[in-house]
Computed example of a mutant assay.
Amino acid sequence: MSLKRFFSEKPMPMFDTDVDEVRLPEATHKRSGSSYYRSNQPQQPSYIRDHRKRLRERFLKGGATAIPDYEMLELVLFRAIPRKDVKPLARLLLETFGDFNGVISAPRERLLPIRGVGEAVMCELKIVEAAAQRLARSRVMQKHVISGWDAIVDYCHTTMAHRETEQFRILFLDRKNVLIADEEQARGTVDHVPVYPREVVKRALELNASAFILVHNHPSGDPSPSQADITVTAQINDAAQALGITLHDHLIVGKSHELSFRAEGYL
């Protein structure tokens, strides 16, 4: 049996845990010509090629609402895994992390141990996550916060709802209540993040901000405030008022909804 026949008939595993991309033979990089390049590209099985074509057409025709989460995830995985059926991996990721947002927001250390996830898959998922966050952020930066409150809440949810540890952010506003800065102030554990009122107010002064909004997430999914949340918010509010700076609100982001300190009477 020739070596060529042996390698052409060797069965491929469902997932390659080390390499997601197709790697071309070394000679491919040393010779020019599109026909040579195409002839050395490993070919997709027809059933995979046809499935991908139909799925892309359905997405382009009907948009995201026309396809479920696992097919949306397949579309993302197509680029990272060009030759294999990605449906099993898409379903495994959803079973592990719950939904599409949970998958793309999952931390690297939890994604990489999953069979079928390598650097290429990781990169594609994180590109989508970064794109979603940038899009949401572009809708709130340099915009009037009060008139665009829903966009603010959407941005906070997109950025923080699926994090597995607590994060504390501050949205700084100018005198016209236009958002001038969005900064992460601290990160913590699954149920605690260290916040120092003096540092919050100091940063507001450095930015010449007239007001700010506090935002942090609860990885448990329940946005109900703890006593520590209530206490530190009151301390920050007292420090801000002493310097003529307004604390508009404190948002706690849960998995499916958010809690406003202002709306709930804590401020």
Rank of each mutant, 00 (worst) to 15 (best):
L135A: 12
D222K: 02
Y37V: 14
A131S: 15
M14R: 13
S224E: 09
E164C: 14
A80R: 06
R56S: 08
R5Y: 12
Q241M: 08
D16K: 03
Q142K: 14
Q185A: 09
T233R: 15
I48T: 13
K53G: 06
L92G: 06
V193R: 12
I236T: 09
G63H: 07
L94R: 09
T158A: 10
P68Y: 04
T165F: 09
E199P: 00
A66T: 13
F261C: 05
S256V: 00
L3M: 07
N237D: 14
Y36T: 15
E166T: 06
G102E: 04
L207V: 01
L94F: 05
F168M: 01
A161M: 12
T233G: 15
N208P: 00
Q44C: 02
L24S: 04
H248G: 00
A66G: 14
S226K: 05
H162N: 13
F78W: 04
T17G: 11
R91S: 11
N40H: 13
L179V: 03
E124P: 05
F212H: 04
L73S: 12
I114K: 06
F100V: 02
I245F: 08
V121Q: 12
G63Q: 08
Q142F: 15
P107T: 11
A240V: 06
E183M: 11
T231P: 00
H192R: 04
L111R: 08
S39I: 10
I170R: 00
H29N: 10
E264H: 11
Q142D: 14
E57I: 08
F6G: 06
I104C: 02
F59A: 05
L94E: 11
G118K: 03
L111A: 13
I146R: 10
V76D: 07
V200I: 09
S220I: 02
K143H: 15
A209D: 08
P11D: 14
V153R: 09
T233M: 13
